[in-house]
Measured scan of single mutants.
Amino acid sequence: MEVRTIKVFTTVDNINLHTQVVDMSMTYGQQFGPTYLDGADVTKIKPHNSHEGKTFYVLPNDDTLRVEAFEYYHTTDPSFLGRYMSALNHTKKWKYPQVNGLTSIKWADNNCYLATALLTLQQIELKFNPPALQDAYYRARAGEAANFCALILAYCNKTVGELGDVRETMSYLFQHANLDSCKRVLNVVCKTCGQQQTTLKGVEAVMYMGTLSYEQFKKGVQIPCTCGKQATKYLVQQESPFVMMSAPPAQYELKHGTFTCASEYTGNYQCGHYKHITSKETLYCIDGALLTKSSEYKGPITDVFYKENSYTTTIK
């Protein structure tokens, strides 16, 4: 009895394709271990004539594949690729409408935090270190965002349907971005203890939790000093293409032309909904596939993004 075979390709990165001759009487799992086709788990399936010449994702289970996976995804987590594939199996079914010149995501599976993050990423200057993220990001900007969303979920250790947080998501993504040249110098002034300067680099240099107003941050924000008295913390120097200011959701007025974009969060910790506000020729609110415009805006804002380049204080 002759062994019926077909020729397929296996890959971990969709760049390096490895030619395989597979036995049609055995499952993919018996031949390769966990195997995925377009995100779908085909591990328990036997090869079919229609699979001839198709590319299958496999887990990096030998040295060659491990090197290829690390170079593309910059992670050695053995569960990463499987999590990416199972997320992709959902995100490829989502709709990605162009809204006001940006790629958004039609609401499904509690994905409003991903839509808000995706919209924000198209408006701030950011370059990702893992080629996987950078490639998928370019495709997302062009309207094909399924891979990018699935990668975000995998890097953030999230599953489809789980509630997510924009600030946490951005923080994970910033860790995989090139923020080497970003720098922030802060000064804390206390009447009792004097003053202390701190220099922050990388992710810490672009994120701040405690106030939404970048102007206020430049002037000074009140913080408790270690001595128990009130101290003032203010920005001395900022070198970065953008800054992200966050605070627990509270009524906040966004003035046209003073910011790049913002995240609105309605609801409580267990259950809520994100919308995205962007400042173009007027203010726009993007909620999944829905767009509304207004000249002014007041609502429960939790993150505001500002364009920056270089700032030095005039406070002496």
Rank of each mutant, 00 (worst) to 15 (best):
V3R: 13
V3C: 13
V3Q: 14
I6R: 07
F9T: 09
T10R: 12
T10N: 14
T11H: 00
T11Y: 08
V12G: 09
V12I: 10
D13T: 08
N14S: 15
V22H: 08
M24S: 14
S25N: 12
M26S: 15
T27A: 14
T27Y: 10
Q30H: 14
F32D: 10
P34C: 12
Y36L: 04
L37T: 09
V42A: 10
T43A: 11
K44C: 15
I45N: 12
K46I: 10
P47M: 05
N49H: 11
N49F: 13
S50V: 13
E52M: 10
K54W: 14
Y57M: 13
Y57P: 07
V58A: 06
L59W: 15
D63A: 11
D63E: 10
R66I: 11
V67G: 15
V67F: 14
E68I: 04
F70E: 08
T75P: 08
D77L: 04
L81E: 07
R83L: 09
M85Y: 11
M85W: 10
S86N: 15
N89P: 08
H90A: 12
T91Y: 02
P97Y: 07
V99T: 13
G101F: 02
T103S: 03
I105E: 06
N110G: 09
C112L: 03
C112A: 13
L114I: 14
L114K: 02
A117T: 10
L119N: 03
L119M: 07
T120I: 12
Q122V: 06
Q123N: 05
I124H: 02
I124Q: 05
L126Y: 00
F128P: 08
F128C: 04
N129Y: 04
N129G: 09
P130S: 05
P130H: 03
Y137L: 14
R139T: 11
R139C: 12
A142M: 15
A142H: 15
A145P: 11
A145L: 05
A146L: 02
N147K: 13
C149D: 03
A150L: 04
A150H: 07
L153S: 10
A154V: 02
C156S: 10
N157I: 03
N157M: 04
K158Q: 03
V160Q: 04
L163D: 04
L163H: 09
G164T: 01
D165N: 08
V166H: 13
V166G: 08
E168K: 10
F174R: 07
F174S: 04
Q175D: 09
H176A: 03
V185I: 12
C190H: 00
C193V: 04
G194P: 06
Q196R: 13
K201V: 11
E204I: 00
V206Y: 02
V206H: 04
M207N: 06
Y208R: 01
M209G: 07
G210E: 01
G210L: 02
L212Q: 04
E215R: 06
K219I: 09
K219Y: 04
V221H: 05
Q222V: 12
P224F: 10
C225T: 03
C225D: 00
C225Q: 04
C225S: 01
C227L: 02
C227V: 03
G228P: 02
K229W: 03
T232D: 03
V243I: 10
V243M: 01
M244N: 01
M245A: 00
A247H: 02
A250G: 08
H256L: 15
F259A: 02
F259E: 05
T260I: 15
E264H: 01
T266W: 04
Q270N: 14
C271H: 15
Y274G: 01
S279R: 02
Y284K: 00
D287I: 11
L290K: 15
T292V: 09
E296Q: 13
Y297W: 06
Y297G: 00
Y297K: 01
K298I: 12
K298D: 07
T302I: 05
D303E: 07
V304H: 01
F305E: 00
S310H: 15
T312G: 08
K316R: 15
